[in-house]
């Protein structure tokens, strides 16, 4: 059981996290955040996130927190 919390309004939509997630659980939204970027969200209905932290490791905006 693990998950991530993405600070929506700090995300700049660089999508580097999308590419490193082993299960493809992070998606970019069409909507924009306060900064005007299409932010990313976790879509993990089946609870497949393992808390591997790869998304947080590559995030340049340090806006992903990982919980296990």
């Amino acid at each position: 059981m693990a998950t991530i919390k993405i600070e929506r309004d700090k995300c700049k939509g660089c999508v580097l996290c999308v590419d490193v997630c082993p299960y493809g659980l992070i998606c970019q939204e069409k909507a924009i955040n306060d900064q005007g970027y299409q932010y990313v969200v976790l879509e993990d209905p089946d609870g497949r996130c393992t808390g591997c932290t790869l998304c947080a490791v590559v995030c340049p905006d340090i806006c992903i927190e990982v919980f296990k």
């Binding site: 309004d9 700090k10 700049k12 939509g13 660089c14 580097l16 900064q35 970027y37 490791v57 590559v58 995030c59 340049p60 905006d61 340090i62």
Partner: peptide, 12 residues
Amino acid sequence: VMHYCPGCGHGV
């Protein structure tokens, strides 16, 4: 919120 551009390595 950092001023760096999207995808810039400075944040990391």
